[in-house]
Design a protein around this nucleic acid. Sequence first.
RNA 1: GUAGUUGUAGCUCAGUUGGUUAGAGCGCCGGUUUGUGGUUCCGGAGGCCGUGGGUUCGAGACCCACCUUCUACCCCA
Length: 453
Amino acid sequence: MSKPAIAKGTRDFLPSEVIKRNYIFDHIKEVFKTYAYLPIETPAIELLQTLTGKYGDEGDKLLFKILNNGDYLAKANPEALANKNSNAMLSSISKRGLRYDLTVPLARYVSMHQNDIQFPFKRYAIQPVWRADRPQKGRYQEFYQCDADMVGSDSLMYESELLQILDTVYSRLNLDVVIKLNNRKILQGIAEVTGQSDNFIGVTVAIDKLDKIGRDKVAIELTNLGMNDNAASTILDLIEIHDIDLIATKLSDSETGMLGVSEMKEVMDYMSDYTLNNKIEFDFTLARGLSYYTGCIIEVVADTETYPDLKMGSLSGGGRYADLTSMFGLKDMSGVGVSFGAERIYDVMEECNLFPESVTKSIDIFFVSFDTESHRYAYKQVSALRGMGVSADLYPDAAKMKKQMKYAHGTGAPFVAIIGSDEVEANVIAVKEMTTGDQGNYSLSQLVEKLKL
RNA sequence: GUAGUUGUAGCUCAGUUGGUUAGAGCGCCGGUUUGUGGUUCCGGAGGCCGUGGGUUCGAGACCCACCUUCUACCCCA
């Protein structure tokens, strides 16, 4: 017999953990529905041709590939096999892989079903994704993403809508966050006015590290790109601005930059009547893996003022991608979306004790009994309660009271019903409140009243 | 992919310069007060010491390889 183990980067969940995870999923789903996003599902398995090349070279390495069925080596590229060249052999032994995120499957879905859906298409999906990454704090190989995306409109109303979704979900979870906002066009504007348009990617990669490695080291990275100290410090001065009007005065020479500014202003204008529960701030250092974002960029982190000791990456991310579906042959489909990292939200809520007490309650009442006759009586009471929507359970036989009570305690039930010959005779239910130890007799209907309170 | 780190009972971990039969706490099971848990006392079960190889009279301990855990980097939720 082999020792039980599970694959690295994956986890089992205890009932109490699943209940708490569902608490998060339910709140997110509820808000998605309120904002009129519709659910879709896509398979865990996608064709590798769908997945590869969408996440950059790094992403391709992190894709889980599925070996072809049958005698796959017999059909492998003989040259690659002889040379032990895994990369060259891959296409001949693996056609499929596990999805890496929910956005690329969405693009595939929209392209395939463009005749069956109407645009703007608003969909949400809460499904697991897989990445062959090195596991770390808050990083797993299998984790859930909760995405809401809109495809098929340029309107900045949707940016505003998604910001409200973020704000609503986190306030309902009672988790204080800071919503950070940027626009890739503003980043481009900064590169333009400092004469670094050719270095755009390098510049954004460098400035994205600002809060991690500090101003001096970013300045070194910038000068390494070939610009002089002056340009580097101008860039640093610009990105450290947090005021949209101030940045506007600096970017007046860049058409793209000014477009970014006006987009941001319009988004905020849509928000003007909405009362935010969380902080929202402009952060021009925000770059977020530039793979497909073209406009607004959003990132959510836990508020360090409320949780000073917390160390956790971003909890949500999102943004506008002007042309996601063209890789699948559908042109001119602008989209915008946000994604909730449920695992990290769970970890933060656990660490900061943010799950309400009531979430952990699994059942309403547990029954124990003293002998065969009272056991049968108890079972009838349990059935009746279940019929009325009360979550009730009964120990399967009249074992020793200590053993039954211990099990009852372990269920987490707030009340335990104790049934012996006295109760059967009087046709009552003796109910003990576990936290206080108080005990009293109730009729079935009285008990239902008590439990429904 | 790079660097470090970890692996001993179900869980958390001790285990001396290599030396008889590998320990503790918690948990689990049983008994103890005959209608009451979390919180009495007593007893018991449970270990290929990550896997494979090597050094040695002798390895949980030393060496090599692989696997695994956690962490930082890269990248990302």
